[in-house]
Structures are given as C-alpha cells and as structure tokens.
C-alpha cells in the first residue's frame, strides 16, 4: 500500500532534529514513509508533491525522551553515534538518526556494527566525519595569549560540524588552571573556560564576535619562535607537499599560527 510521505520539518539544531525524531517515532507511521528535514534559515524549501508536512517545535523534554530511550533500549555506543550525528552539518542527518534508531530498537546494540544496512552505513560515515573533525580541532587549534595578568588564551577555529564542545572538553582537562576561550567562528559560539576549572558553551552576539576577532589579530613573540621551529624541522630532501596537504588540509590552515603571514 502506498502512503504519502510525511516530512517532519524542524529547527536546524541538534535539539530540533531530536524533537522531530521523537514526533516521528511516536506517530507509528511506517518508517519507510518518514523524512526529517531541518529548516535552514534563508534557504528556499523544496516542497515535494503528495507529501504531508508537519512542523515540529523544539522541546527539551522530547530530546531527553529520545536520548533516554536510546541509552536504555539500544546502547551507549548508539547514543554517541546519534549525538555526534546530531551536531554534524549533513542535510540527511535527521533521516540517518531516525532510521538508525528504528533499526536499533529492534536489533539492540548489534545495530552499531551492521554496516550492511545502508542507513547504518550512513550514520557510521557521519560519525566518522564528526570524530575526525573533533580530532583535527584538538590537533590544529592554536591559542594566543591576548592578555596578561591574568593570562587569557584565545583560539579561533571554523569547524564544519559543531564540535567545539567536544574539543573544549579535551582542553579543559589539559589546562585546568587557565582562562581560555575557544571561538567557533563558523557557528558563532564559544567555549569559555575559567581558571577554577569550570567551563561553558555560549552563543555569541555580533558585538562579542567582532570583539573576539579584533583580539585575535594581535601577534605575540612566541609566534616567531614557533614559525622558526616549524620551518627548520622539515627536511628539504624529503619535501612532499602532497603528503602535507593530505594530512593537514588547506581548509584548516587559515587560523593556524605557522601558516599565517
């Protein structure tokens, strides 16, 4: 029997998507006929014929309910897959999460390894992309001391996915006694870490963003020392730009000390 496809439209945030997954889940409508479309502001919508459109409000309770069900009925690993997918920038992440969870509720934890299922394969790819970018951020982020007494470190990064919170966790453990800010220019948010070890993520206003950008344009002495080291550590006879680009994509270089003028 053919049914019209139901499209759940939601906010383009992790919360929005998980709320839509919740609504779609309790609807009992066949999995095959469900789509989840996060609405990107300012982008024209593609309305398909013969489809029902349902608008979903973001709601913390719905999100919690989804997370709770995944952790209880599938596994912690499935939960990490879903959370990483939710913060990714892929347009089909809502569908991937919904379909993955649907399989998961019947298969349990085994679903995480069942790569022969196309949607599991997809969420696995998304998960890998997000995890890789988190690692890139941990590797390639560069701090600058923008203020002394007390010292304040500032880093700017433009991740494709919203991984700043994941990376900030790593730096909070690494520098427990430092004041630092990690500014995610792509998503307009930042992690603020206090010298007492507490930290928080916050969306920034326009003014705050431009202030951070001005601050980051300073240049301190250690930049020269680091550049000197960077230039000298390479072996000329082994020069290999292709390999360097493979391992350190040009995209990430714009905020890296050693590649800035």
């Amino acid at each position: 029997m053919d049914k019209p496809v139901r499209v759940y439209q939601c906010d383009n945030t992790a919360e929005g998507i998980l709320s839509a997954v919740y609504e779609a889940g309790i609807s009992g409508y066949g999995h095959k006929y469900i789509r989840i479309e996060p609405q990107v502001k300012g982008e024209a919508q593609n309305i398909a014929l013969f489809s029902e459109y349902i608008s979903v409000e973001s709601d913390g309770k719905k999100v919690e309910s989804v997370i709770d069900a995944v952790r209880r009925k599938i596994s912690y690993r499935a939960y990490t897959y879903i959370m990483r997918a939710a913060i990714s920038a892929f347009a089909d992440r809502g569908d991937a999460i919904y379909q993955f969870a649907a399989y998961g509720f019947s298969m349990g934890d085994k679903v995480c390894s069942a790569l022969q299922i196309p949607w599991v394969k997809r969420i696995f790819e998304i998960d890998r992309a997000v995890a890789n970018e988190t690692n890139h951020m941990i590797e390639f982020l560069r701090f600058q001391e923008v203020q002394r007494e007390p010292s304040l470190l500032l880093a700017v990064f433009e991740p494709k996915h919203q991984v700043t919170a994941l990376a900030a966790e790593h730096f909070a453990d690494r520098f427990p006694d430092e004041w630092f800010i990690i500014y995610d220019k792509a998503h307009g948010e930042a992690a603020f870490h206090n010298a007492d070890g507490r930290w928080e993520m916050r969306l920034l206003t326009r003014q705050e963003q431009s202030r951070l950008e001005t601050l980051s344009e300073q240049r301190e002495d250690y930049v020269d020392l680091w550049k000197a080291f960077f230039e000298n550590i390479a072996i000329e006879e082994r020069r290999n730009g292709g390999l360097q680009r493979n391992l350190l994509p040009l995209y990430y270089r714009k905020h890296m000390t050693e590649f800035k003028e």
Partner: peptide, 10 residues
C-alpha cells in the same frame, strides 16, 4: 596527537 605537519609531510 599530531599538531602540525611540516613541508616534508612528517
């Protein structure tokens, strides 16, 4: 953790 890659790709 690798932090950078030199001109020789190391």
């Amino acid at each position: 953790i690798c932090h950078s890659f030199g001109a020789d790709g190391r």
